[in-house]
């Protein structure tokens, strides 16, 4: 370590491996462990609470099994309405659909904002970005009416369209930055090599902005997967429920009690795809977020 060697070179400094640096390292590890525990504790509680006995499952606290271990909460979740697999599929359709549609629109949009000149380009871009500032709740009613007019209320497609709309400003911005970071010469070299149009986007540019595409897709997927309000308002048919809406429906136990066990079991299942996706894609994702930040 550089710190140690510098200390070693200085005759007046304490001897090598001496107290000060070791002590700092301990403090660092303890602090880091505490922060990690802080973040991981709720996840632990959620997972643990799903395994409580039915008799405990209606109590909010303590959120871990005390009298025994049971999969009963998962069984109750499975028996609610259609199977849990059905609702997971609903969520998956909406989330994957949103991610694909977002990528499909944001990539060409970002490309054209980065590479082409057209009238009012700057203004249009600022307008797109400014929609981030509009609170989503305020446009929920008009959106609902709009979808109803198009006959898309209570459909997963309608939900995909809403989520994509909300996701696009950020995604277009991300993709423009990603394309901006690709040197123009590479595109020019490809033009001389005979690459044109959509092939340029797929074979040359697409590969170079892949981290950006992954980031945009991952954000769209996670936001759609976790979104609750729009799904609650738009979906009335129990068959169409996505997982977050299912969670609110499943929590009503007998006689107005709250079935904490089933809710926590559902939340645990909801977490799994997010975790897997994030772990697989985290390398590309981190590169995507920092792309263009430092040249």
């Amino acid at each position: 370590m550089t710190a140690t060697t510098i200390v070693g070179q200085d005759a007046a400094a304490p001897p090598r491996g001496g107290g000060r640096i070791k002590y700092h390292r301990w403090i660092f590890h303890i602090a880091a462990a505490l922060v990690a525990i802080l973040f991981l504790a709720p996840i632990f509680w959620v997972v643990a609470a799903g395994f409580r006995l039915p008799s405990e499952a209606l109590q909010p606290l303590p959120p871990w099994p005390t009298e025994g271990f049971s999969f009963d909460s998962y069984v109750r979740l499975e028996n609610y309405g259609q199977s849990i697999l059905h609702y997971t599929m609903n969520s998956a359709i909406v989330s994957v659909g949103t991610a694909l549609l977002t990528i499909g629109v944001a990539v060409p949009a970002g490309y054209s904002f980065s590479r082409y000149h057209f009238p009012l380009k700057g203004l249009v871009f600022v307008l797109i970005l400014s929609t981030i500032m509009i609170p989503f709740q305020s446009i929920l009613t008009p959106l609902f009416l709009l979808l109803a007019k198009m006959g898309l209320q209570n459909t997963l497609l309608g939900l995909i369209l809403i989520y994509t709309t909300l996701q696009l400003p950020f995604s277009v911005f991300m993709m423009r930055n990603a394309f901006d970071a690709v040197p123009k010469e590479i595109e020019e070299a490809a033009r001389i090599d005979g690459v044109k149009g959509i092939r340029m986007l797929v074979q040359v540019m697409g590969r170079l902005v892949l981290p950006g595409i992954v980031t945009v897709g991952l954000f769209a997927f996670l936001n759609a997967w976790n979104e609750f309000l729009a799904a609650l308002v738009l979906l009335t048919d129990q068959d169409k429920f996505t997982l977050p809406v299912l969670m609110t429906a499943v929590r009503y136990g007998r006689y107005g009690s709250v079935d904490w066990g089933a809710v926590q079991a559902g939340v645990t299942i909801m977490m799994i795809p997010c975790l897997i996706l994030f772990l697989i894609l985290q390398r590309s994702y981190i590169r995507g977020l920092t792309a263009g930040a430092v040249k």
């Binding site: 040197p183 010469e185 070299a189 040359v204």
Partner: peptide
């Protein structure tokens, strides 16, 4: 090109 402009992938 001056910057080589090779396809990095």
């Amino acid at each position: 090109f001056q910057s080589y402009a090779l396809y990095p992938h």
